[in-house]
Computed example of a mutant assay.
Amino acid sequence: MPRNSVNPIEPYTLKNGEKRYRFQIYLGTNPLTGKEQRTTRSNFKTQKEAKVALLQIKYEIDKGTFQKKSYDTYGELYVLWIENYKNNVEASTYRKTLGIFKNHILPVMKDYRIEKITIDICQKHVNEWAQKFKNYRATISYAAKVLDFAIKRGIIQTNPYNLVDMPTAITKRKVMQQEEKEENFYTKNELNNFLTCLKSENDFKKYTLFHVLAYTGMRKGELLALKWTDIDFENHEITVSKAISLDYNNKIYLKSTKTGKTRIISIDSNTENILMQWKKQQMKDCMVLGFNAKSKTQLVFSNKYNSYMQPSLTQKWLKKITDTHKLKAITTHGFRHTHCSLLFEAGVTIKEVQDRLGHTDVQTTMNIYAHVSPERKTSAIDKFAHYLAN
């Protein structure tokens, strides 16, 4: 049997200069592996507190009731949870999750001992996150997943995040503040003005890209994954079956659409002509660079290496264009909302809009419908007044 230290409790210093105590204790030999087993406890504020915990563990070992806890802190358990989580989600979702934990959850929770996390502690962080973030519920949901993971492993019995009170007053205030902000789409006149300004810059690739976004409502990732074989000029249709995204290493990869379903989008003759013109120019550009643009795998929009474009590039283009011409700033995704809004304004039914944009849930379509342009709202009240008057 290994020789025990006279006093296994030792002090150490945190990064912020505070003093803490820890100890390691021998548990015996693992009957399955034949290897020595030890457990460590740390983060005690006083030597007396560490001594009490040490005596308690020794007592449980003597009685045969001690159960080794491999994951003492939230941060330690998170490491195991995230490895399992990684195998069950898209790489892009995993990347987003890493960011939420790194930026918002781990900085405040990683050092908490799992069994010491109370409802009050969770409530405190829920209130903080609600003040900081619009989508704070997602942060809470992710934070709770690690504790659900702890329940499955018998470390704790209940998840305190399931018992917190959601700050509804803060939520309502944030919704009101959001509604006061400028909407993330263009009206008909704003879109036409944007495309006119863009056309004047004589960059046909950019013009084509934003025109197609506005006239099809495709997601950016779907558009950047598009190949010429996906466009049926004879039947005036585009097949949307895949998208590009970034994994946790910021590398581009090809995946299915957001809903996992393929959809067919009809295109108007003007959009079709613009695409045909771009195809001819792209072939010339690729020939100069030594690429074969006639390949069946040729992308509609590619980078200078004739590979996938970085998704962030479109937003950089957009910002430069709106700044140069002093236009309303929207995001690249705002062109999808623009397309949706103008479809409603043109009188297209909600069901038709849902199918065209590939929304699995009609509520998503309805949420955009609730923020349609002033022209559409005026039209609605005019129709109402006309109906009552006749």
Rank of each mutant, 00 (worst) to 15 (best):
M283R: 03
Y74R: 09
D148S: 12
G75F: 09
E234S: 12
Y94I: 01
A143C: 10
K199Q: 05
M366D: 05
K63V: 12
Q177H: 06
A380D: 14
D230K: 02
F204H: 06
A346P: 06
V288M: 11
L342T: 12
L327E: 01
L195V: 03
K326L: 06
E237M: 14
I100W: 01
H104W: 01
I264L: 08
L343G: 05
F44D: 02
N193E: 07
A214W: 00
I265E: 03
K63T: 15
C340S: 09
G17P: 07
A130C: 14
L77A: 09
F194M: 02
M283D: 06
A385P: 00
Q315R: 04
A225M: 10
E76P: 04
F66A: 04
Q24F: 00
Y253G: 00
I264R: 13
N7H: 06
S241T: 01
L318I: 04
K220E: 08
E375T: 04
S295R: 05
E352H: 07
K48P: 05
V108T: 07
G34A: 14
H386C: 03
K316M: 12
T187Q: 10
I117P: 01
I368R: 08
S269A: 10
G347V: 01
F133V: 00
G358C: 08
A243K: 01
K35G: 13
P167D: 09
A214Q: 00
T65E: 14
K304T: 02
K174H: 13
I25K: 10
M109W: 09
S92W: 03
K284C: 02
E10G: 05
S245H: 01
K45N: 13
K284G: 06
N135S: 14
K102E: 15
A169S: 13
E190Q: 05
S92I: 06
T216H: 03
P311H: 14
I151C: 08
F149C: 03
H339N: 10
M166D: 13
M366T: 06
G358P: 11
